[in-house]
C-alpha cells in the first residue's frame, strides 16, 4: 500500500508538471463547459444543469487518453523497466494509475459544479452524492480503459489511433455531444452498449431526476465492475519491457472487459427505460430544441 501511495503521489506531481495534461484536463473541459453553458444553454440554469451531465462525463472520460499515453511512453522509453528493478508489482503500477487519476480529475469536476453555481446560477444539483459516486466510478472505469489500451498497443502511434477512435465513439454515441434521443434509431441502440452512455445518463438522472445511488445501481455497478475487470486483465497483460510481445489471446482478454456493458446493453435494448427517460428529460427542459448541442460540435483533437 505504501508503494502504491508513493507511486501515486509521484505520478500526480509529474502529471501536473505536464503542460499537455493541464491543457486536456483543465483547458479543454473548461472550453466545453463554457461552450455548453453559454452557447447551447444560453446561460439558462435549468438547461445548464441538464448539459452539465455531458460536460462532466467528458472530463471524466478523457482520463483514458492521458493514462494510456503515459504508460506506453514509459514502456517505450524504458522507464517502466527501471521500476521493475525495484520491488514494484504490476498491480501497484496499475492501482497507482487509477488513484492518481481519481485525484487529478476530481478537482475538474468540482470546479465545473462550482462554476455552474456561480456563473450560471444553478442552485439545485439534484443528488450531489450520486453525482460524485458516478464521477468517481467513471474515472476508475475510464482510467481502466486507458490501462487496457496501453496493454494491447505496442507503440505510441497505435495508442493514439485507438484513442482517437475510442474518443469519437465515446463522445458522439453516448449523449455527450448529441442527446441520445436525437441520434438515429440504430445509433440509439448502439449507444446502449457503451459505458459512456450510462455515465452521461446517470449524471443527468442524478442532477435532473435527483436519482439516488440506489436508483443508479445498474450504472454505477456496471462502471465499477468494468473497472474491476479491466484492472484485473491489465495486471495480467502488463508489459514492462518495450520489446515484450503481446500474448496471442491478449486482445480477446481485453475485449472480454466489455462484457458487463454487452449484458446491460442487451437488457436495456429489450426492457430498458433509458431511452424513454432520456427523451423525457430532454422534453422537460424549458428551452426549445435549438438549446441542444448541434450534431456538428467540433471534436476535440487530443494529442498529448
Amino acid at each position: 500500500m505504501k508503494i502504491i501511495l508513493t507511486l501515486a503521489a509521484m505520478r500526480i506531481r509529474i502529471t501536473l508538471r505536464n503542460k499537455a495534461f493541464l491543457f486536456f484536463s483543465l483547458v479543454m473541459p473548461m472550453a466545453f463547459f463554457f461552450l455548453y453553458g453559454s452557447v447551447f444553454a444560453k446561460g439558462n440554469p435549468i438547461v445548464v444543469r441538464y448539459l452539465l451531465g455531458p460536460v462532466i462525463a467528458m472530463s471524466v472520460m478523457g482520463t483514458f487518453w492521458g493514462l494510456s499515453a503515459q504508460i506506453v511512453t514509459w514502456r517505450e522509453q524504458g522507464i517502466l523497466r527501471r521500476f521493475r528493478l525495484a520491488p514494484v508489482s504490476a498491480l501497484s503500477m496499475i492501482s497507482s494509475s487509477i488513484m492518481a487519476n481519481l485525484l487529478l480529475i476530481l478537482p475538474t469536476v468540482i470546479l465545473e459544479l462550482f462554476l455552474a453555481r456561480f456563473i450560471y446560477h444553478v442552485t439545485n444539483f439534484g443528488n450531489v452524492l450520486s453525482v460524485f459516486v458516478l464521477a468517481l466510478s467513471g474515472i476508475a472505469a475510464f482510467a481502466s480503459l486507458g490501462l487496457i489500451v496501453a496493454s494491447v498497443t505496442n507503440t505510441m502511434q497505435e495508442t493514439q489511433i485507438i484513442n482517437q477512435l475510442l474518443w469519437f465513439a465515446l463522445i458522439f454515441v453516448s449523449g455527450a455531444t448529441v442527446p441520445v434521443p436525437d441520434l438515429p434509431k440504430v445509433a440509439q441502440h448502439v449507444a446502449l452498449f457503451l459505458p459512456a452512455t450510462y455515465l452521461v445518463s446517470g449524471l443527468q438522472r442524478a442532477m435532473v431526476d435527483r436519482a439516488s445511488i440506489f436508483a443508479l445501481v445498474p450504472e454505477i455497478g456496471c462502471l465499477l465492475i468494468w473497472a474491476g475487470l479491466a484492472i484485473f486483465i491489465s495486471s495480467q497483460l502488463f508489459r514492462w519491457e518495450p520489446e515484450a510481445k503481446l500474448p496471442r489471446n491478449a486482445k480477446l482478454w481485453a475485449a472480454s472487459t466489455i462484457l458487463p456493458f454487452v449484458l446491460l446493453g442487451i437488457w436495456e435494448n429489450h426492457n430498458g427505460k433509458l431511452l424513454a427517460r432520456a427523451a423525457s428529460m430532454m422534453e422537460e427542459r424549458p428551452a426549445d430544441k435549438t438549446a441542444a448541442p448541434e450534431p456538428g460540435t467540433p471534436p476535440p483533437a487530443k494529442n498529448p
Binding site: K2, I3, T6, L7, N18, Q77, R82, V88
Partner: peptide
C-alpha cells in the same frame, strides 16, 4: 536501456525509489 520521467526531479527520484 532505461530512463526516468522527464519531469521528475533528481531528489524526488532518489526519494521515490527509497520509498519502495
Amino acid at each position: 536501456a532505461t530512463s526516468l520521467p522527464d519531469k521528475l526531479r533528481v531528489g524526488e527520484a532518489i526519494r521515490l525509489f527509497a520509498g519502495f
